[in-house]
Amino acid sequence: MNAAHLNEGGISAMRLRGLMRKEFLQILRDPSSIAIAFVLPVILLLLFGYGVSLDAKHVPIALVVDEPGAATASFTGSFRHLPYFDPLTLPDMRSAEIAMREGRVEAIVHLRTDFGRKLYQPGGTPVQIIVNGVNANTGRLILGYGSGIWINWLHQYAQINHIHLPASVQVEQRVWFNSELRSRNYLVPGLIAVIMTLIGALLTALVVAREWERGTMEALMATPVTMNEIIIGKMAPYFVLGSGGMLISVGMAVWLFDVPLRGSIWLLFGVAALFLLVALGMGLLISTLARNQFVASQIALIVTFLPAFLLSGFIFEISSMPQVVQIITHIIPARYFVALLQTLFMAGDIWSVIWPNALALAVMALIFLVLVRRISRKRLD
Rank of each mutant, 00 (worst) to 15 (best):
215 G>F: 00
215 G>Q: 01
216 T>Q: 00
217 M>A: 01
218 E>D: 02
219 A>Q: 07
222 A>W: 11
224 P>I: 01
225 V>T: 11
225 V>N: 02
228 N>Y: 00
228 N>P: 02
234 K>V: 00
235 M>G: 09
235 M>W: 04
236 A>H: 01
237 P>T: 05
238 Y>S: 05
238 Y>D: 07
239 F>V: 03
239 F>K: 00
240 V>S: 10
240 V>G: 01
240 V>C: 07
241 L>A: 13
242 G>T: 06
243 S>I: 13
243 S>K: 04
244 G>R: 01
244 G>Y: 10
245 G>T: 09
245 G>S: 03
247 L>R: 03
247 L>Y: 06
247 L>E: 10
248 I>Q: 08
248 I>C: 04
249 S>Q: 03
251 G>W: 03
252 M>F: 08
253 A>G: 02
255 W>D: 00
257 F>C: 04
258 D>W: 07
259 V>M: 02
261 L>E: 05
262 R>M: 11
262 R>D: 09
264 S>V: 01
264 S>H: 06
264 S>Y: 09
265 I>M: 08
266 W>V: 08
266 W>H: 11
270 G>F: 12
270 G>A: 10
270 G>H: 04
271 V>C: 09
271 V>E: 05
273 A>Y: 03
274 L>R: 02
275 F>Q: 00
276 L>D: 08
277 L>I: 07
277 L>H: 00
277 L>Y: 07
278 V>L: 14
278 V>Q: 15
280 L>P: 07
280 L>S: 06
281 G>R: 11
281 G>P: 08
282 M>T: 05
283 G>I: 08
283 G>C: 12
283 G>P: 07
286 I>T: 10
287 S>K: 07
287 S>N: 12
287 S>E: 09
287 S>P: 11
290 A>T: 07
290 A>L: 15
290 A>M: 14
290 A>S: 15
291 R>S: 05
292 N>A: 09
294 F>N: 08
295 V>N: 09
295 V>I: 15
295 V>L: 13
295 V>K: 08
296 A>D: 07
296 A>F: 13
297 S>R: 06
297 S>K: 09
298 Q>K: 13
300 A>Y: 12
301 L>Y: 13
301 L>N: 11
302 I>Q: 06
302 I>E: 03
306 L>I: 14
307 P>I: 11
307 P>D: 08
309 F>D: 04
309 F>L: 15
310 L>W: 14
310 L>M: 15
311 L>V: 11
312 S>T: 14
312 S>L: 12
313 G>F: 14
313 G>T: 12
314 F>V: 05
315 I>F: 15
315 I>T: 13
318 I>K: 03
318 I>F: 05
318 I>H: 05
319 S>V: 05
321 M>N: 06
322 P>Y: 14
324 V>A: 15
325 V>N: 04
329 T>R: 01
330 H>C: 11
330 H>P: 02
331 I>F: 15
332 I>D: 06
333 P>N: 08
335 R>M: 09
335 R>H: 14
336 Y>K: 01
336 Y>I: 00
337 F>M: 14
337 F>T: 01
338 V>C: 03
339 A>W: 11
